[in-house]
């Protein structure tokens, strides 16, 4: 893999605040044109890691490279960052804010004015262009904040919990935009603790817990490495079989189906045979991959 395919590279990065270690010996690679999920529970060190990537804080040791160069403030112009702590100038008009944030990225001019209109149309806020941001609802403000992060057409977009607090329609709208940006070749780093969202849009993930990396890799590979050891079953009767600990280690009963995690050493064929033998009527029997949520919980619990 050549260097220009790598957008971000962290090498044994260490950061502490006083006695508290926020990030410990973290190495990771973000490949160009992919959606990278930086996942972990609250307080794991996600935000500190991101802040080092955008040059807000410097690591105590270790190195950070962006676009193949050591991080510096000039590189900041090529990044779009939507932090978790975000706001707008309350008394400023939407269009003035957008202009201001873009000027801080050294972007201005006629083409840019057109881009403002395009983006406002895209997030369906065109008619709010000349309103003060205090007149906007919280969800609208969040969309404007998102626009400030992408307006200067950055090569790398870093989003920290971008969908939190959005209604499903707007969350879906932003998700579509993120995927569009990915298709146009942008690299996106996406930080969240909402695994269902990460599962839908991430290509690669890095799981960190308590300042340390627990897992890194492509979502696809990680899932398959966890093996197809889960079965989705819909059947009538045969409850005793699913509760047999020699076959099934964990059962999660949903409204319409049951998820069974196979016990160590057991295999799905045996389970199916036992179910048939017990006289159960089977509506569905399917090998499934573990959800990212399952992986997350398993790994984080193991790590503790």
């Amino acid at each position: 893999m050549s260097a220009n395919h790598i957008t971000v590279k962290l090498d044994r990065v260490y950061k502490s605040f006083g006695d508290f270690t926020a990030v410990k010996e973290l190495s990771l690679t973000v490949r160009a044109g992919r959606v990278f999920g930086l996942l972990g529970p609250n307080g794991a060190g996600k935000t500190t890691t991101i802040r080092m990537m955008v040059n807000i804080t410097a690591p105590d040791s270790g190195s950070i490279e962006l676009f193949g160069r050591k991080i510096d403030s000039a590189l900041q112009n090529r990044i779009g960052y939507l932090p978790e702590e975000r706001g707008l100038y309350r008394r400023m008009k939407v269009v003035d804010q957008l202009r201001f944030f873009a000027e801080l990225k050294n972007v201005r001019g006629k083409v840019f004015e057109k881009r403002i209109d395009e983006w406002l149309a895209r997030v369906k806020l065109s008619e709010w262009k000349n309103k003060r941001s205090m007149e906007l609802s919280k969800g609208m403000q969040q969309k404007i904040q998102f626009v400030t992060a992408v307006l200067h057409d950055p090569e790398l977009l870093i989003l920290d919990e971008p969908f939190s607090g959005l209604d499903p329609i707007n969350a879906e709208l932003l998700k579509e935009i993120v995927l569009d940006l990915k298709r146009s070749g942008k690299t996106i780093i996406f930080s969240t603790h909402q695994m269902e969202v990460a599962e839908k849009i991430c290509d690669d993930i890095c799981l960190i817990n308590r300042a340390e990396k627990v897992l890194e890799g492509s979502l696809r590979e990680l899932k398959s490495s966890f093996g197809r050891n889960a079965v989705a079953v819909r059947c009538e009767g045969g409850d005793g079989v699913l509760d047999d600990p020699s076959l099934v280690s964990k059962v999660v009963r949903h409204a319409d189906e049951t998820q069974a995690l196979l016990a160590h050493g057991a295999n799905a064929q045996t389970l199916l045979r036992r179910l048939i033998d017990s006289g159960a009527t089977i509506g569905k029997f399917e090998m499934v991959e573990p959800s990212l949520n399952d992986i997350f919980i398993t790994k984080v619990t193991e790590h503790q």
């Binding site: 955008v54 040059n55 932090p83 702590e85």
Partner: peptide
Amino acid sequence: RIAEILFSS
């Protein structure tokens, strides 16, 4: 809470 956005620029 704009500070962090600004400091990325």
